[in-house]
Design a protein around this nucleic acid. Structure first.
Lengths: 84, 84
DNA sequence: GGCGATTTGTACGTATGTATT
DNA sequence: CAATACATACGTACAAATCGC
């Protein structure tokens, strides 16, 4: 049976051909389009995402910047990052 | 006599009300519009700018990102940053 | 309004990778 | 191949905004 379980973040492969922040951006985008994160939902805190993905805060910031530019998410200082 | 001497970069005041990277962006913009850096000119290397301004490399990166967004400069990987 | 907890924002420092000369 | 210069990545610290109590 297909249970819509939380798909754990795929740890970043720092040696892979794809830049780390693009790996994170791609994975987050997939989790959003898959419905794991629905519109209005708040994503985990950026620093928590960094732990999940096994990467630096800076890398998550770059990733979320990409998704913000795409209009996929909205970030509010002091509150969090939300799915558009 | 007014000599068009090189105006040294104003060191960043990290305690000031203006964000450090905006201070750098503003100063660079002023040096460009004043003609110190003319179109086609290459700016000093980002790390040299960091030394000039007494700030971190990251701060210069943020500043140049602002000027790039404004179309004031163009950055080429491995070559440098040029006035548009 | 104050206080603390949470979360994003900025800043610094450093190391390594990649492109150009 | 070496030097130069931008790009990415990691780690850390502190500031600023928000919210609940």
């Amino acid at each position: 049976m297909l249970t819509m379980d939380r798909m754990p973040a795929t740890p970043v492969n720092p040696r892979g051909p794809v830049l780390a922040y693009l790996q994170v951006a791609g994975d987050l985008a997939a989790r959003i389009t898959s419905g794991e994160f629905a519109p209005g939902d708040r994503l985990p805190a950026e620093r928590d995402l960094a732990v999940e993905y096994g990467c630096a805060y800076d890398t998550v910031r770059r990733a979320t910047a990409v998704l913000r530019d795409r209009g996929l998410i909205v970030t509010v200082h002091g509150r969090g990052t939300f799915v558009s």
